[in-house]
């Protein structure tokens, strides 16, 4: 019989949400996660809109489920996620998830993503987006990044640029992430692989809107990631 994630498992899980100028999109994401019974660490990445106010408003509704940290200036998704990973250890959860806060990931996938960690099948999970559903430019950039991740980091995964990932607390303590921007996705996979942490891929749904498409790994970001990958070889 297939394992059902319990409320206890959810209570032991913290979801890290880096947020930069997401005032118009983040509220439904936070509330969907809180409704499911998960805890959250939300890192405001020096947003210039009222993201912080929107997050604080959600905290009023779910005061015990939400913890907020705020970077005083924008440092990119890599630093915001690292801050979330550092903060999450204060709460000593069993499982840690990180996902995008712009609504492109669904809270409905959380159970499936943490299930391999709860059952002990793996210590890390990579949420894999269906590449065929992506717009052409994004699909192409992701394929290129998968190849580069294979060449530079020697890991073969079907979606190296996913922002939806989960890891156990003990495994999180072993990995060391220093990426500044979107390189964090590839670096997370490299660290998991290099530290011999068993991981699995879990299919997730992706909701593309014109706004979510404006962010993420586009050609410009891909070039930045490539430069950082080359730099890391030295």
């Amino acid at each position: 019989m297939e394992y059902e994630v319990t409320l206890e498992d959810k209570n032991q899980t913290y979801v890290v949400l880096p947020a930069y100028n997401e005032a118009t999109r983040i509220q439904p994401v936070i509330e969907a996660i809180a409704e499911k019974g998960y805890n959250m660490i939300i890192v405001n990445d020096g947003s210039t809109d009222n993201t912080l106010e929107v997050i604080t408003e959600s905290k009023r509704k779910y005061p015990d489920k939400i913890h907020i940290y705020s970077l005083i200036i924008n440092r990119g998704v890599g630093v915001a996620t690292q801050t979330g990973f550092d903060a999450v250890l204060f709460f000593n959860p069993k499982y840690v998830v990180s996902m995008d806060s712009d609504g492109q990931h669904s809270a409905d996938d959380l159970d499936n993503v943490i299930k391999p960690l709860v059952t002990g099948e793996a210590q890390a999970v990579i949420g894999v987006r269906p590449l065929q559903d992506m717009p052409f430019s994004r699909n192409f950039a992701n394929k290129v990044m998968n190849i580069l991740t294979r060449i530079f980091y020697k890991v073969n995964v079907s979606d190296s640029q996913t922002g939806f990932r989960a890891i156990t607390r003990d495994a999180l303590r072993k990995i060391d992430i220093n990426a500044k921007g979107y390189l964090i996705s590839s670096e997370f996979i490299r660290e998991v692989n290099d530290n011999g942490i068993p991981f699995v891929e879990v299919p997730i749904q992706t909701i593309y809107t014109p706004e979510t498409q404006a962010k993420g790994t586009n050609a410009k970001e891909a070039i930045k990631i490539f430069i950082q990958m080359v730099k890391h070889q030295f």
Partner: peptide, 22 residues
């Protein structure tokens, strides 16, 4: 950049935002 990241991270980590702050 690395130094700035460290400082910004440390400031954020030592100041969890609570409802009382607002």
């Amino acid at each position: 950049q690395d130094d700035v990241n460290k400082v910004v991270k440390e400031i954020a980590l030592s100041n969890e935002i609570s409802l009382d702050d607002e």
